[in-house]
Design a protein around this nucleic acid. Structure first.
Lengths: 243, 243
DNA sequence: AGACTTTTAATTGTCTGACATTTTGCGCGC
DNA sequence: GCGCGCAAAATGTCAGACAATTAAAAGTCT
């Protein structure tokens, strides 16, 4: 494991890259212990602080974890689906908030992906996941709910739909798409009437999944997309004319 | 911006979290300059090294960038689609390689997502993207190609398909799914006969997109999924019986 | 006055050495 | 055999120094 001395990048970035590559290429396996900071410093011929900065970079990407104490040190971390979800959501949220992505584009992406899950989900959804959907539909019907709670419940509902596909890779990919939409959705004020319409569509989706009717689920999702888009456009237009 | 003194996490992790939250919640805007390391050290009442470790964590997530020199410092970074792609791919690749995700599951996820793009792509694909697909198909027909080059070309082809949907959010989400499959695909030896079959299917897909025939594109993708799965299973079985 | 050069100040990057804290293993006394 | 404390190893934190880089300010020449 070597670093290029005539690179212009920071030493800590180069060292992080060298170790990261070793992990990605499988030269270091999960739970393997890295050399101690002092040993790494000697190997790379830099100070301990520089090594530490490199290790913090890797820790930020969940590539390693550290333990203090004797026989502690830095270990190659098994990236769990949980951690991957989290990173995915953070990245997607920031991407959307920082790049002026329009409601239309985000909405289209989200529903295109969700509809990809629908056939699998209608085949494999567990009773548990159906129960979650029903529970969230019930929560969404409560009159006193704030818009934020309504949106949070919406996210839970849709994640149950996605998880219903029984494919963890798919769930991972979609976690970002669904959750990253929440800040955009939170900007919408849901009137009693629009909530009613959404709950009705959610019910149709849940019914379709329960009946394992992929086509009906797809149709209902398509209508939900259309309706969400309409609501979003209404809000954007109102905001524009107000300013 | 405060940190909780009776947390058990590292100070540098706490400080990174405090700054990260400020960015995510919009309290710091893009291109805004953070206080200098010395000032941050004073604010949080820690040493400069600790602040630096925190900043490296944020830099690893592309949340900030740093410039040296007078009037340099750390600036809130606009997360570009490019950077987001990169992170997405790294995460997805690691997730697959570290969690013994089966070829079947990964394949299913990938094609489910790609098929979600097909209708949009058949509507919006540009001549440029069609040309890329045709060029890659041509490359894939070359007899001397290594398996790695064949797979790389395959990735380029499929990314053109995904980009054809003209939705950057969708492209971002799918970058991981498509690229992360490459290491798994690289393990497959493509015989001349299987390459021929894949090229034929790719041609059908490109034809369908050119003709803006969403249904035909979907069918061809479905067949490609079935065929890829078959190839993968063959390899896995051969490997199993060999060991 | 304007263009070029030098100085200077601010800031990050790196190094050194020290001490605090945490955790494990081992030996000792009981 | 069982607890107890101690030593060792490692990460976490701190303080201070110097190097490298960069942009603004000051100076200088034509």
């Amino acid at each position: 494991m070597k670093i290029d001395p005539d690179q212009k990048a920071d030493l800590s970035a180069q060292i992080a890259k060298a170790i990261r590559d070793a992990i990605i290429e499988g030269r270091m396996i999960v739970d393997e212990r890295l050399p101690s900071e002092a040993e790494l410093a000697e190997q790379f011929e830099v100070s301990r602080s520089t090594v530490r900065e490199a290790l913090k970079r890797l820790a930020a990407q969940s590539l390693i974890r550290t333990q203090r104490g004797a026989f502690g040190g830095a270990f190659v971390n098994r990236l769990s689906f949980e951690e991957a979800y989290g990173q995915q959501i953070t990245t997607a949220t920031l991407l959307l908030s920082m790049n002026a992505v329009s409601f239309d584009v985000a909405c289209e992406a989200r529903y295109a992906l969700e509809r990809a899950c629908a056939p699998l989900s209608s085949e494999r959804r567990t009773p548990d996941q159906l129960a979650t959907m029903r529970a969230e539909i019930h929560r969404q019907s409560q009159p006193g709910l704030t818009d934020e709670s309504f949106c949070a419940s919406d996210v839970t509902f849709h994640r149950a739909l996605v998880d219903g596909a029984g494919n963890p890779v798919l769930s991972f990919q979609l976690a970002g798409a669904v959750e990253a939409m929440q800040p955009l959705m939170n900007m919408i004020t849901f009137t009693a009437r629009s909530r009613e319409a959404i709950v009705a569509l959610h019910t149709r989706i849940a019914d379709a999944l329960e009946a394992q009717d992929a086509k009906a689920a797809d149709t209902a999702l398509l209508e939900l997309e259309r309706y969400t888009l309409e609501l979003g456009r209404g809000v954007m237009k109102a905001r524009k004319s107000a300013s």
